[in-house]
């Protein structure tokens, strides 16, 4: 089967978008307080896992009984690599199947489910984290909903958390594919 030039380009673009995302943060939280010179930044990378000023976050968290964030004891960070590998496979497959109707939509659908599953899982993890509070902590807090996405101004802290390019690049690949699929289909019709 001879690959058309534009399909080749689509496969390449999708693969590159997903592959590049391996090295970029998929989620980040930035915590700014007046007494901290540099804001605390914690990022989740598909390959590198949780990166950032964890020590300080942990120091602060232990006062209120939030668990210790230790990348070494988070199996999901291992899975995350495979999930992204899977994303790469599915994005290439979907690109290759682009224009072949149902099969494309099936693969694309699985791809999008996996992709959206990542932040959903992360949110649930965070939810669990902020609802599992050590009752012996020096300062009592009620469980709370995690600041997962958006800008928060709380007490003297400015918190910004956002999905990063590690999420949006694979999403862009998916959008590109659905967009091309629709275009190619309509161009076939005419």
């Amino acid at each position: 089967m001879k690959l058309s030039k534009r399909k080749g380009l689509l496969i390449l673009t999708s693969a590159v978008l997903v592959a590049v995302s391996f090295f970029l943060p998929m989620w980040a939280i930035n915590l700014k307080a007046p007494f901290i010179e540099k804001p605390l930044l914690v990022e989740v990378y598909p390959l590198a896992g949780v990166v950032g000023d964890l020590q300080n976050v942990n120091i602060v968290n232990h006062y209120v009984g939030l668990g210790r964030i230790d990348p070494a004891s988070m199996p999901e960070l291992v899975y995350l690599k495979f999930v992204y590998a899977l994303l790469l496979v599915f994005s290439v497959a979907a690109a290759a199947l682009n224009g072949s109707g149902k099969r494309f939509y099936l693969v694309w659908g699985i791809y999008i489910v996996i992709l959206l599953g990542i932040p959903i899982y992360a949110y649930l993890w965070m939810y669990d984290y902020t609802h599992t509070i050590n009752p012996e902590a020096p300062i009592k807090v009620e469980p709370f909903d995690p600041p997962f996405f958006g800008v928060y101004r709380i007490a003297n802290f400015d918190i910004t958390s956002y999905l990063g390019p590690g999420f949006f690049l694979p999403l862009a690949a998916a959008i590109l594919q659905i967009f091309t699929a629709l275009r190619w289909r309509s161009s076939e019709k005419h």
């Binding site: 939280i29 915590l31 700014k32 307080a33 007494f35 901290i36 605390l40 300080n56 976050v57 602060v60 968290n61 006062y63 209120v64 939030l66 902020t130 300062i139 807090v141 009620e142 709370f144 995690p146 600041p147 928060y152 709380i154 007490a155 003297n156 802290f157 918190i159």
Partner: peptide
């Protein structure tokens, strides 16, 4: 306490 929790008491 999100602040306190995550960013520093």
């Amino acid at each position: 306490f999100i602040a306190a929790a995550v960013a520093g008491l």
